[in-house]
Amino acid sequence: MDRPFKPAYIVEALPRLLAYLPLTLGVALATVVAGSILGLALAKAKLGRSRVMRGLADAYTWTLRCTPSIVLLFLVYYGLPAFAKAVFSVDISLWHRAFFVVLTFTLFFGATMSELMRSAYLSVDRGQREAALSHGLSEFQAFRRIVLPQAAVSALPNVATSVVALLKEGSLAYTIGLVDLMGQGTLIIARRYGAWALETYLAAALIYWALTVTLEKIAKRLERHLSRGRRSLA
């Protein structure tokens, strides 16, 4: 190679990147919360009686599934302020960039969650709800106490996968200038005029790797804990 590889720079970059971990996690958390609410609304529409609502919710999910994150991110970042200015005469172009990031990924995460919630709900045997109703529980109680816990267990592995995907895709936020973990990495490199880029990127990759592996471990643990009392066929 035309320049030496210095692992020391990975070590050096780690704490400087980790300082921005809270922001990265905060953005992800906000997205998960907002996306779950959107997902719930979409799932309700998909399971509901209105054919129009079902069609709209399905079309929305399909569209988002076909959209690259970076394209939607740019559309939201550049398009929303233009739209707000034209329609409401409000200038939001200087709002914090995290807002645009959370909004973009909420749109994605909501679509994913709606599909997961729908199939999880359908995975619970009809008889469970009927048994609960015939034991005198109200419709809401039957859902909250019987159906929901079972649906949650069956959805959990996929939810974990989706959150991991969200974290990974969220790293694109730096392309609109958000200084999170990834953004800080590119800043460090820029300040050194591109020197030790490989080491810095590797440091960022290591942090993301640790993050996703930890998340998956937690999900596994949780799943084992929640699925007590369930016998598996396999």
Binding site: K168, S171, L198, Y201, L202, A204, A205, W209, T212, V213
Partner: peptide, 26 residues
């Protein structure tokens, strides 16, 4: 598999792109 699935693709791109050309050249 764990690494490739556990890190953002954008980082994989940046790592490979800052490593590969000079490596291939060497």
């Amino acid at each position: 598999v764990s690494f490739a699935r556990g890190t953002p693709i954008v980082l994989q791109i940046l790592v490979v792109y800052s490593l590969l050309p000079s490596l291939a050249n060497a």
